[in-house]
Design a protein around this nucleic acid. Sequence first.
DNA 1: TTGAAAGCGTTACCAA
DNA 2: TTGGTAACGCTTTCAA
Lengths: 354, 354
Amino acid sequence: MAVPSDASTASHSPTIDHVAARAGVSTATVSRALRGLANVAPRTQAKVEAAVKELGYVPLSFAAALAGGKTGAIGIVAPWTSRWFTAHLINAVEPLIGEANYDLILYGLGGSNERLRRLLNRNALASRVDALMLINIPLTEDERVQMKTWGFPIVSVGMGHTPWPNVEIDDEAGGRLACEHLLLQGHRDIAYLSGDRNEELAIWSNHDRETGIKEAMAEAGLDLTRVIRTAYDMRGGSDAARRLLEHSDTLPTAIIAYCDETAFGAIGVLREHGLRVPEDVSVIGIDDHEMSSIVGLTTIRQDVRAQGTLAAQIMLRLLRGESVDASNFQQPIGLVERASVAPPREHELTGWRR
Amino acid sequence: MAVPSDASTASHSPTIDHVAARAGVSTATVSRALRGLANVAPRTQAKVEAAVKELGYVPLSFAAALAGGKTGAIGIVAPWTSRWFTAHLINAVEPLIGEANYDLILYGLGGSNERLRRLLNRNALASRVDALMLINIPLTEDERVQMKTWGFPIVSVGMGHTPWPNVEIDDEAGGRLACEHLLLQGHRDIAYLSGDRNEELAIWSNHDRETGIKEAMAEAGLDLTRVIRTAYDMRGGSDAARRLLEHSDTLPTAIIAYCDETAFGAIGVLREHGLRVPEDVSVIGIDDHEMSSIVGLTTIRQDVRAQGTLAAQIMLRLLRGESVDASNFQQPIGLVERASVAPPREHELTGWRR
DNA sequence: TTGAAAGCGTTACCAA
DNA sequence: TTGGTAACGCTTTCAA
């Protein structure tokens, strides 16, 4: 490449060749010096650094990517970006990625399964990032096989896929724990405000929570007969509660919500209908959303931030070529008792009649 | 470039040259066909498309970036990514960006002013994206001048910078509206749970809201003497309320919170101290967070989603080379009355004594 | 420890 | 409407 005879005249950003000319060394040497490779004499290193500073040189990331095969970016694929779990996960991951000097490319899917398929099927992703974090992303067998050919680190959170490491909680245990707490308080008529079958992108965590609940019920000799399917957020919780009130002759004495946001939505509707929580209906969630302490919601706690930090650390290890010692990283959960669960009342409900 | 004689033998991803060989046309023609440029015969177009499909070819974005100068990515710079405003804004922006076939590179700053400076001062950003959206980002004059040389579309939300278009609400009017509502109810002793001076990254919206409040107070012949500075989130609200309770001999009759999340935090602490909202203290927020309807928080509503959509549309227009007809897009706000504001009680506070 | 030069996969220009 | 070919700015041999 031709180096302008007078670098200071350059109208555009300086290139590595300008730096080389300025420092009186070759392009290759600048490249090595800048990336901290061995075999660069201290004096040379200093000259290069000085030239870089004087020129205000910044490497063009995609030129480096083209030549070196590394993009300097990490992709995060998530069904949604603003719901509680994902928003907080991204927030935890982002500083670690930034400090490791990677860009974070966010592939939000707006809940669309079709957008996910398009993203994965075109191999576009493979050339755009050096590593991928999948947040609650289901994969078909074909996709999984194809992604293995991509040959860069993949880490998942929530839904796991062999052979990649996965950070998760035990959703089944979560559902069970929530249900057992209600049973212990004496509840027998329990409803589950579940995720929607059509919202395919979070289907497994929901499935597992439901399984846990069913198991706990079964152990108490009961059936989970009331399951309302709805979206995984506050609005979904409201809709579900509304349907529960409209289509049932009797009210359950307790409600388990897929997550805290669903619980909030449900509580709002219950109150609108003049029902008190927990006097008339108990409600328990899963997550421990910050708002839960304000609302007084009893819930099963999970630590998203810890999950995000761990997933990011694993990813960065893999990017450095180090290995990780397990493929499944299960994070603890626990019951947080607050004010939204109480023993069922024995007398008739006052204040609510269909 | 040499084209493998037997393309099907290619071990790695097919390149544009493979496609060209397969379709029996030149590289240049494939490039044109793929980008939908004019001057490609329908037959040729069809041949190329067929070859692309058979080979599963996907263009390498950074090779295109290097040659064509377009990165295919849009950057979003935001102080935080998980707080209500930003999370919802990103959520609104992201599908529009995705559908326009741009990647979204998220530069979260973890609230760190220093990270912002580093990001802007190295011209790295300039080469990584085709356009930039700044969410509540303050710019020094030097930075602003330098960024003008970047020569690609910039759109901001919240804090605006000439000459770029800005989407915002009138924060001053918001503060005023909140305060006037309280004054109308008869409140005279009002506290403002304000943002922290040290959290430099949202300082202006807070400043404006505070100004609006002061003006409203002044018009009623009052001074805003109680201002507690704290972080812009729930925890900040809790801290501020705690300090208010600990350091004051008397309680204000009403509290204006910088935003709804701050209000939630404050309400939690008030309740912990046995104080009822609104019987003992009225609380008003700004935002209309989804949780506000559950908590019954009176607030000043703003529509984040609309702001995000508008900002994204403006950005995409600019990217298409179209012009926008204004530089300031002010979005409406409005009072939402719920249950957290009531007239002040005349008698002494019961249930709370320092 | 350094330099010269050949790629990396695309776009853009100029001719045909 | 097409093809040949020189960039684009960096990394990576291979030799020196």
